[in-house]
């Protein structure tokens, strides 16, 4: 499915889910999400990871509503904890069945997002591996000078800000030196069309969601 349309659909479902009072609807959304992930051949390890990581928040939510909840505590406990799973799988669909490149490219072409935003974000994403390494280097460098940097040390923030400023300056100069200009029209090597069948699929999903929302299921 087209990445922009997928993003839109996931956002609408998530939004509506927040107001729905049905455990079964949550389970159906989570189950459909899981099936989609499996169909898209997302590795079982990643799916297992999503299930395992969520155990603590799910159990925590369930338990706190069960013990402290007002009114129908049992229903609230199940409602809130199953909702977490629904959200996790919806998030999984966004993260694991498409790349950032595809999503940004599609947003640029299908939703006419400004190219400055698209390529700036893309460039920043490409910096991510450097961030981890740089923080480690920063800490070691400080220790070599006899100072220990902690999460709460002002120096670490100061240095991070300086490095970010330098990176952003470098990034924009790199983009400009390779001909980037937000005002001129650019060509697109990868094109993102919205295939006709995407619309009926999206429509069916949304109509189905309304049935879940208003059918008064448990």
């Amino acid at each position: 499915m087209n990445p922009s349309l997928k993003l839109g659909l996931v956002l609408i479902i998530s939004f509506e889910l927040a107001f729905m009072q049905s455990v079964i609807a949550n389970l159906i959304v989570a189950g459909l999400g899981l099936i989609y992930l499996i169909l898209k051949r997302v590795s079982p390890k990643k799916i297992l990871w999503m299930l395992v990581v969520s155990i603590i928040p799910v159990f925590g939510t369930w338990f706190s509503f069960y013990t402290h909840g007002a009114g129908d505590a049992m229903h609230s406990a199940w409602l809130l904890s199953t909702r977490i799973y629904a959200y996790i799988f919806l998030g999984g669909i966004l993260s694991y069945t498409g790349t950032v490149d595809e999503l940004l490219g599609s947003l640029e072409q299908n939703c006419h997002l400004p190219s400055k935003f698209v390529y700036g974000t893309l460039g920043a994403f490409n910096f991510a591996p450097r961030v981890v390494l740089t923080v480690k280097q920063m800490k070691t460098a400080a220790m070599m000078r006899g100072e220990a940097l902690h999460v709460w040390s002002p120096e670490i923030f100061f240095k991070s800000i300086l490095i970010s400023l330098r990176w952003s300056d470098n990034l924009s100069q790199a983009m400009v030196s390779h001909g980037f200009n937000e005002t001129t029209t650019r060509t697109h090597y990868d094109t993102f069309a919205i295939p006709w069948w995407n619309w009926p699929v999206a429509g069916i999903c949304l109509v189905g969601l309304q049935f879940l929302a208003f059918s008064g299921l448990f």
Partner: peptide, 8 residues
């Protein structure tokens, strides 16, 4: 690709 797209 980025560069050549920029140049249209």
């Amino acid at each position: 690709i980025f560069t050549l797209e920029n140049l249209g």
